[in-house]
Design a binder for these strands. Structure first.
Lengths: 152, 152
DNA sequence: GTGTATGCAAACAATTTGCACGGAC
DNA sequence: GTCCGTGCAAATTGTTTGCATACAC
């Protein structure tokens, strides 16, 4: 699916969600959605705020937080809490579930997916009689070659 | 190992750590360590503060945070970030590595350990040429019988 | 005696809330 | 015309910092 098609599609999903829940379809809300789906990748609220400020659009942080809640509710973005003050979001449409490796020195985030996690999840659900709603798996790592070069 | 032996042991480890790093062995620091190892289980800073206040001991939050940093540094406690404002700690001596299931309705935390996680970790390290320092795996779940009873 | 650790209160950063105005309906 | 959503600034929460005093060394 082309990038322009995706952007079109998520606007429709958002529009439908807002209508169904009797929320107003304000230009701010669609501008924020556009901005998020224009850049892809992970972002935090402050970065999004600055990014939109630098472009044409002027939104308050309050509106960003408000809209992000709506986008989370209709599953157009996902939230990740990488650490106390390291909340990040990412667009989730046509973007399959995955987990994260956070490089502790640079803050860089890399995605991965390992099917064995689903086996662990299934085992737990069966063994404990629970329903797992979602999960968070983060590995905090450093790159080997960077360890080597630090030895100089 | 008996509970009293553990408490004795961790005091010795902490004492050694403080000496090696030229930190003072203040009564507050040992009182905090004792309090943590008296109750075991997960705790957050506020709960620890209230708990100590209710007993004999009067410590400031600043000292709690300071001491917790020291205890983290010498691996006598572990920190878990279950959500933005849900940082919890737990004593880690004679307490093997494990992961957590957080029940989203009650906030209850249950521990589990699945060896397959180590396989995932190993695969990633080998495939990507990285060294994983630590990880965080949390499942957010509800109990099945509670789902059923909600249907009433 | 020196200088680090403490308690307190003020500072902080990320998020939230309250309020008056503006625009979606 | 209603009243929800906005921008702004003030409030809030968990944590950190600054400063004067206390006490470990």
């Amino acid at each position: 699916m082309k990038s322009t098609e995706i952007k079109q599609e998520v606007r429709i999903i958002f529009k439908r969600y807002l209508e169904e829940h009797k929320h107003r379809k304000t230009p701010e809300r669609f501008a924020i959605l556009d901005e998020i789906y224009n850049s892809k990748g992970h972002f935090d609220v402050e970065a999004l705020y600055v990014q939109m400020k630098n472009k044409k659009y002027r939104v308050s942080r309050a509106t960003l937080y408000n809209t992000i809640d709506l986008l989370l509710a209709c599953n157009l973005i996902r939230k990740h809490q990488f650490g106390k003050n390291m909340a990040q979001f990412e667009p989730s449409y046509t973007n399959s579930q995955h987990d994260h490796i956070i490089f502790t020195d640079s803050g860089e985030v890399q995605e991965f997916c390992d099917p064995r996690l689903q086996l662990i999840k299934k085992s737990l659900e069966d063994a404990l009689g629970i329903k797992i709603l979602h999960h968070s798996l983060n590995f905090y790592a450093v790159k080997i070659d960077e360890i080597e070069s630090e030895k100089d």
